[in-house]
Design a protein around this nucleic acid. Structure first.
Length: 743
DNA sequence: ACTAGGGCAGCCAGG
DNA sequence: CTGCCCTAGT
């Protein structure tokens, strides 16, 4: 069909679109039929090729709904969509299916949930919910949580699922006590989730496979629908994702996968690097295109990265090169301890920013583990440097936020037992453990969902009258708003409903700063719902909750602010910065080693270091400390062996490094530690350095409307404003959260 | 039913 | 060190 959806204003044929690409890029973008493997080195324009390819398809007349693009992060999906919109227009870009495996599959599964024994309003369980379910199952089975760590069981279950192993098979293969117990928990866990009408992250993939395998008509309709399939970061797919893609691609065989085996850093969560290495075997007629020209970094940085990665043997052949300038040498900072490291890093940054005319947002500090952010944050705060933490402890993991969301989840899916257990006594209603156990036991015995038992609590033997009243009140909250789900918009529903739960009053009544913060966080959720609703007027509460469940890195609404970014190396994948600091380059920390670490694991750490280096465009600073606080104790460490692998030509003379692992390093003498100044409790909240607010100023709040600031208090991230709104209502708002707009 | 306080594991990374 | 879980005491 030749339906032309995109008006081409200047009458140029589709090929003109690709004029700005280099040869391999153009080849990849225009090779639309049949299997295609794109091996894309860091900074080689991978996203550019993918977006141009999709735009090219659209220009060729392919209907947007026939294009599927699967990514690993929401960030990547969002960026791709935006760039496609830029090329072909917002309206057309909206029509393509682009998102993470999990979010795309969740949406598709909703439509066919009944075929799998779920209802279309199933809940998605995150890893905390998983853990709660596992603990509950362990309690029921009488498995001690001391003898068996619930998190270890969770990771075994998840590992099994990623490898497509059922609980039955897992049980058959169990070779020791731990695995046998895990098998038992696994079985009950699966039953519990199905009963709760809930899927965990892994289920989203597995159930998609089951759906496609067991329903030929559904498979056929998906084949009809998804004619051009794209998978980003293919080296990160696990067995289940690989199979799902295979099934989907069987229809038209227009499967385009993009990846870089050198950047495979998710082996620990089941990624099989073999998937990309074997693509040619899976599709013997596949075309392979290598993107080896790097447009991002200086020659020095590329040379350093290549000199490190060549120590890994199992890599696809590929050599990164660049036409960019040679650039500055890499600076290495040898530091006494973690605190000294933080100070030196901040000092170095300040002078570099000055020297090169860079600004805060041009800088990222990367580290191996989240725990390393603490001393860095302290130093940045002491020097009044604006920073933010990218995907640290997520906003959505906070207790009050989880509680508020759990209420909404139960409203949408009453079968969600984990959420009920979370909130039934939050705020305290006098429904304690004893009563809960009776209720749960009754639910199990009668094979009913917990919510139904709560609704008919009078049938449960042995409950006190007072408890019965509490349970009835609890159930009434949901019953009262049951119909409102279809009548009110998600924003006003959530506002009224959460008010009815008593959760807001619970925090209002405590006059502590902590309670105020928690209230502000719930307020932020409500604001967020109305914002999402504004962008998407068909938003349902169900859909909102799904989106929230599937984001872990909150899509930083404030990334536009001018601040230094702090994040783990993992979180930095796909990003780039003019100046990058890699902190904590010490043996044991990076590479992070456990007693039983294998060569494969060291290779993965090296790839991780490769990812870190290649985030830098112009300037790279690497630091290590001779001693570091770990688990509250001072530990001694030597420079990372990876440092010694960097070609010495790339290092600045003053760094006279080679700090090679194994050799002793001279360090400044240790200094007694002074107590740290108290940490802000919410460190990832942006530190406001400007004085945008003043008493008397007219402001607008997305929920409460227009008002006037009548008082200001607190500093930095805990700064608050008291605002009187047009309706006379007064509110304490956390400036860092409240999205106030100056008028 | 709830709370305080001690004991102990965790700090490897994410959808 | 921090945060969670468990226990004992009210």
């Amino acid at each position: 069909m030749t339906l032309r959806l995109v008006p081409v204003a200047d009458g140029s044929p589709a090929a003109d679109l690709l004029d700005g690409l280099n040869d391999p890029q153009r080849q990849a973008a225009s090779h639309t039929e049949g299997p295609l493997l794109i091996i894309a080195g860091a900074g080689s324009g991978k996203t550019r090729v993918l977006t141009y390819r999709i735009a090219y398809l659209l220009r060729q007349g392919v209907h947007p709904s026939h294009i599927l693009a699967l990514t690993f992060t929401n960030k990547a999906a969002k960026e791709m969509r935006e760039r496609i919109a830029h090329l072909v227009g917002d309206h057309v870009a909206r029509g393509i299916i682009a998102g993470t495996f999990h979010s795309v599959f969740a949406r598709l599964l909703r439509r066919h949930a009944e075929l799998l024994g779920y209802t279309s309003s199933f809940t998605v369980y995150d890893s905390d919910d998983q853990l709660a379910a596992i603990k509950a199952v362990m309690t029921t089975l009488g498995v001690s949580q001391q003898a068996q760590s619930p998190t270890a069981i969770r990771s075994r279950i998840s590992g099994a699922k990623n490898a497509m192993t059922s609980w039955m098979e897992y049980g058959r293969n169990a070779s020791n006590v731990n695995e046998r117990i895990t098998a038992q928990v696994f079985e009950q866990y699966e039953k519990r989730l199905l009963h709760a009408n809930a899927m965990d992250f892994d289920d989203l993939i597995l159930n998609m496979i089951a759906l496609l395998r067991n329903n030929p008509d559904v498979l056929a309709s998906f084949h009809e629908r998804f004619r051009y399939i794209h998978v980003d970061e293919y080296q990160d797919t696990n067995r289940a994702q690989y199979l799902a893609v295979q099934l989907l691609a069987k229809g038209h065989r227009n499967i385009c996968v993009v990846g870089d085996d050198a950047q495979s850093i998710y082996r620990w969560r089941g990624a099989e690097i073999q998937n990309i290495l074997d693509f040619g075997r899976d599709y013997p007629d596949a075309t392979t295109v290598r993107l080896e020209q790097n447009y991002r970094s200086t020659k020095t940085i590329i040379k350093a990265a290549e000199s490190v990665i060549k120590n890994n043997t199992k890599q696809l052949k590929k050599e990164l090169w660049t036409d960019n300038a040679a650039g500055d040498k890499i600076t290495v900072l040898a530091c006494r301890d973690d605190r000294d490291e933080a100070d030196q890093v901040v000092r170095t940054l300040k002078s570099r920013l000055n020297e090169h005319g860079l600004t805060w947002r041009d800088v990222a500090i990367l580290y191996r583990t989240n725990a390393q952010s603490q001393p860095l944050e302290d130093a940045l705060r002491r020097s009044n440097t604006p920073y933010h933490i990218v995907s640290g402890v997520s906003f959505y993991k906070r207790k009050e936020v989880k509680d508020a969301l759990a209420y909404l989840r139960v409203l949408v899916n009453p079968a969600d037992a984990e959420s009920i257990l979370r909130i039934i006594n939050e705020p305290a209603r006098g429904i304690g453990n004893t009563s809960l156990e009776k209720l749960q036991a009754f639910a199990t015995a009668t094979n009913r969902i917990l919510y139904d038992v709560l609704k008919n609590a009078h049938e449960v033997p042995g409950l006190q009258t007072r408890t019965l009243v509490s349970v009835r009140d609890f159930v009434n909250i949901f019953e009262m708003y049951r119909d409102a789900v279809n009548e009110l918009t998600p924003a006003s529903l959530a506002q009224a409903f959460l008010e009815a739960t008593g959760l807001l009053d619970h925090y209002r009544n405590q006059k502590t700063d902590d309670a105020r913060d928690r209230l502000a966080n719930i307020d932020r959720i409500l604001t967020h719902i109305s914002e999402v609703q504004e962008a998407d007027d068909e938003l349902t509460l169900l859909h909102y909750l799904e989106q929230v469940a599937l984001i872990s890195d909150q899509d930083d609404p404030e990334l536009g602010n001018n601040r230094i970014a702090l994040m783990t190396v993992h979180a930095s994948k796909g990003l780039e910065f003019p100046l990058v600091v890699i902190a904590g380059m010490e043996q044991g920390l990076f590479p992070l080693v456990k007693p039983e670490s294998s060569v494969d694991e060291e290779d993965e750490e090296r790839r991780l270091f490769y990812v870190a280096i290649t985030r830098a465009r112009q300037h790279l600073v690497i630091s290590y400390a001779g001693q570091r606080m770990r688990f509250g104790e001072v530990g001694f460490s030597r420079p990372s062996k990876f440092l010694a692998e960097i070609d010495t030509d790339c290092l600045s003379a003053s760094a006279k490094v080679p700090a090679a692992a194994g050799r002793s390093v001279s360090l400044p003498p240790p200094r007694p530690r002074r107590p740290e100044p108290p940490r802000e409790s919410y460190s990832q909240i942006p530190v406001e350095t400007d004085n945008r607010w003043s008493v008397g100023m007219r402001v607008k709040h997305p929920m409460f409307g227009v008002g006037r600031i009548i008082a200001l208090s607190g500093i930095g991230s805990s700064a608050k404003a008291q605002v009187e709104f047009a309706n006379g209502q007064r509110k304490q708002l956390m400036l860092a959260f409240a999205r106030l707009e100056a008028l």
